[in-house]
Design a protein around this nucleic acid. Structure first.
Ligand code: FES
Ligand code: FES
Lengths: 167, 167
DNA sequence: TAATCGCCGATTAATGTTGTCGTCGATAAG
DNA sequence: CTTATCGACGACAACATTAATCGGCGATTA
């Protein structure tokens, strides 16, 4: 059980979209080349991010992607939800509604009407994880990277994309 | 992306092991019959629970399973970990160590030495989920079920297993 | 008008999940 | 002591999902 690699691709790529000039874009080709990941697959991830309203795509020659809103308004959870979907990690298959006691029609109806404590507990736990992710924004991530990485490497990274940014 | 159905099977079945007389056991056959799930697959789940030290198996005729410790000492997370394994939901593939800048040997070494902020954030979020699950024990679950389910259905359930409990 | 880009659906290979089968060793009952 | 019953375990099969590719489409720019 695990999140798909697309979450990692997406989050890492979005970082590079934060600091570009307004109205500039970065293409899939640049992003995949810089990260050393599959171009076609990354393009699928960005389709999802576009549908989720996190980035805006510019088609045509010199096209590419840019953030659709302030990096302050994009949380980790937004990205995870866009890539993985909103379905919970614990997916209750309602096995309690299938038990021996449910051979009694009346009991079955009653069981189906009431929620399962186990399911609710699992969903509560997931919600706690989501809340942590909701509190981490791309802006926060960008500042954190400024703190952790060397200024030189940050500069080199921006240089790479500046050379190929489509204005 | 989801937890396997085994988590649901396991948690639901463990409930029935809480209230049985000491030294009594319940067999896979009873558990799977009551829940209406595959006998052979459920047996695999219980193998994992046994290895994790959550239940104790009694082989041979009239054999079965019983809790290996107080239901107060068995948390939801213990069960999830036993069935799903301890690997994190977000599995970092170290894509940052594969970037364009890492073509510079020196930079690559530096990158590999430092942790990724994104990965740490995701793990922190997961840890928050785990902590919720760690705080919910089987005892708590049992009391909650007493509160939520009808006394009659609880009684019927215990009756079902009492009829077939192996002493 | 031709080259370049994102978009989208079909497809594929690899991997993981769900579940079965058959064999083994342990054990209680006859 | 034999036999039927149980859990343990590994092989395997069916199915679903994931990671990734391919090819055609429409938009855009030079
Ligand atoms: S029925 Fe799905 S968790 Fe209880
Ligand atoms: S390298 Fe894996 S999350 Fe950053």
């Amino acid at each position: 059980m695990q999140y798909s690699i697309g979450v990692e691709y997406g989050l890492h790529c979005l970082v590079y979209l934060i600091d570009i000039p307004p109205d500039a874009t970065i293409g899939i080709k640049e992003l995949s080349a810089f990260q050393g990941v599959s171009e076609t697959y990354l393009s699928k991830i960005f389709s999802k991010l576009t549908k989720a309203g996190i980035v805006v795509s510019v088609p045509g020659v010199k096209g590419g992607y840019r953030l659709s809103k302030s990096p302050d308004d994009i949380s980790f959870w937004d990205v995870v939800e866009a890539v993985e979907g909103a379905t919970p990690i614990f997916q209750c298959k309602k096995i309690k509604d299938n038990s021996y006691l449910c051979q009694d029609e009346e009991y079955a109806a009653c069981s189906k009407a009431s929620p399962c404590v186990i399911n609710m507990t699992m969903l509560e736990a997931e919600e706690s994880m989501r809340n942590v992710l909701r509190n981490k924004t791309l802006s926060w991530l960008n500042e954190e990277l400024d703190r952790v990485l060397t200024p030189q490497s940050r500069k080199d990274t921006r240089q790479f994309f500046a050379n190929s940014t489509n204005v």
